[in-house]
Structures are given as structure tokens and as C-alpha cells.
């Protein structure tokens, strides 16, 4: 029976069971996530939607290992996060998860190319390979010829493209994107989402968004709605 469970977990990129997260805020207990069972298969393009305070961000933080659950477990690529030591978890996250943030969060003193290759440097990828992959990904996100620029010199849309390139360049299994379009106008946001969807199709990487932007919802193949820390709806759109 246990062996069957292990096999079942290994079928998923993300497998959570009974996730709960309770914060203490001014002495009061706040339940941000209440018993979430989430399963994502490889190559999914999924949006988690819900009003502010519904637990979207907390859920993404727990899935990525940036935060810990009060109760329940997370398996990523079949590995149980709670069993990992801090350093091991940091390495695992570096090699398997790409992050895209609402505020881009690029390193302002590093040029576009350097920002994109940063994770590969930490991974110890050789220089030739890094250079090749940086050029390829910048080409794919439409930033060819902009590698030498510093992030503050770029528009919001361009910065988010750099962030996408940075998240994808090391070919992680999972991309977590938290409100990636929130700081962009609808046209730019739409174009970026189309680009990510195309990259998802080409690379087979799994995308998990947290959003309340329709631009994302419209393009997601699966939409999970959260309310008060619980899954209210889980819809898979027909292709």
C-alpha cells in the first residue's frame, strides 16, 4: 500500500497532502492555508486564483520550501521537502524551481546577461554552456542584444522578461510565478503570458501562477480557486 503511495507521488511534480499554515499575528492565530491537497503533473500551466488573503502566496511559499507548513507535507519531484536539511533544500530549490516575482526582483547591479546566468554560476555550469544558454533564452524572451543593459534601464515588461529568462535558463522542473503581471499593463502582461505559454509548450516545464489577473486566468489550462485557505474549485479547461 505504501509502495503504491510512493509510486503515486512520483507521478506528480507537486504533491501536497493536508497542507495547513497558521500564523500568529499580534497574538491571534490566523489560518492562511487549511488542508490543501494539490497535485500538479509535469508540463501543467496552472493558475491559483482567489481574493487577497485567500492563501495563494502562502501556498506557493510552502510549495517552494521558502516557508514551512504547520501541518501536512509537500513532495516535489517525489522528494519530501520536510526531510531535507536547509542546505540541501536550498540546492534542491536552486536546481528545480524557477521564481518569477511581481516586482521582478532582479539584481540591479548585474547586467541582464549576468542576472540570467547567476543561477547557472551557483550550479557550476561551465562558461561556454552558460553563454550559449543565456543567448538562447534571451532570444526566446525577445531580449536579443540587450544583454549588456542594467535592469534599472529597462521597462517593466523588459525586466519581467529578464526575470522569466532567469527563472527558465537552468531548466527547472517547476516555475512558480507570483502575480507576474500585476505591475504590467494588460497588453504587455498578455504578451508575456503568451510567451510563457509558448515556452511551456516547447520545454514542458510546469508553471504554477498565483494571480487574480484575468490575463493569466484566461490562458491557464487549469484554474484552482482558493477561498479562506481552502480549495473552492479546481477546473481543467478543455483544449
Amino acid at each position: 500500500m505504501e509502495e503504491m503511495n510512493v509510486r503515486k507521488i512520483k507521478d506528480y511534480i507537486v504533491y501536497t497532502e493536508g497542507l495547513e499554515k497558521t500564523y500568529k499575528d499580534n497574538g491571534l492565530e490566523v489560518k492562511a492555508v487549511r488542508g490543501i491537497d494539490l497535485r500538479l503533473k509535469s508540463g501543467e500551466f496552472t493558475a491559483v486564483v482567489g481574493p487577497s488573503g485567500s492563501g495563494k502566496t502562502t501556498l506557493l511559499n510552502i510549495i517552494s520550501g521558502l516557508d514551512t507548513a504547520t501541518r501536512g507535507e509537500v513532495w516535489l519531484k517525489g522528494r519530501l521537502l520536510s526531510k531535507m536539511k536547509k542546505r540541501e533544500l536550498a540546492d534542491f530549490r536552486r536546481d528545480n524551481i524557477g521564481f518569477i516575482f511581481q516586482a521582478y526582483n532582479l539584481i540591479p547591479v548585474l547586467r541582464v546577461e549576468e542576472n540570467v546566468e547567476y543561477i547557472m554560476l551557483l550550479q557550476g555550469v561551465n562558461k561556454l554552456e552558460r553563454h550559449k544558454r543565456v543567448l538562447e533564452i534571451l532570444d526566446e524572451v525577445g531580449l536579443q542584444g540587450m544583454g549588456n543593459r542594467l535592469p534599472p534601464k529597462l521597462s517593466g515588461g523588459q525586466q519581467q522578461r529578464v526575470a522569466i529568462a532567469r527563472a527558465m535558463v537552468s531548466r527547472p522542473a517547476l516555475i512558480l510565478a507570483d502575480e507576474p503581471t500585476a505591475n504590467l499593463d494588460s497588453k504587455t502582461g498578455g504578451a508575456l503570458l503568451d510567451m510563457m505559454k509558448e515556452l511551456n509548450r516547447k520545454t514542458g516545464m510546469t508553471f504554477l501562477f498565483s494571480t487574480h489577473d484575468n490575463i493569466v486566468v484566461e490562458r491557464a489550462r487549469r484554474v484552482i480557486t482558493l477561498q479562506d485557505g481552502k480549495i473552492l474549485k479546481d477546473e481543467v479547461k478543455e483544449r
Binding site: 517552494s64 536552486r94 516575482f101 516586482a103 539584481i107 547567476y118 551557483l122 550550479q123
Partner: peptide, 11 residues
């Protein structure tokens, strides 16, 4: 926040 990002991506 910057150090947070660095830590998040594996630094």
C-alpha cells in the same frame, strides 16, 4: 528584499 531573492534562488 534583494538578499531574500538571492537566498530564494539558491545563494
Amino acid at each position: 528584499r534583494e538578499y531574500g531573492v538571492l537566498r530564494a534562488v539558491g545563494t
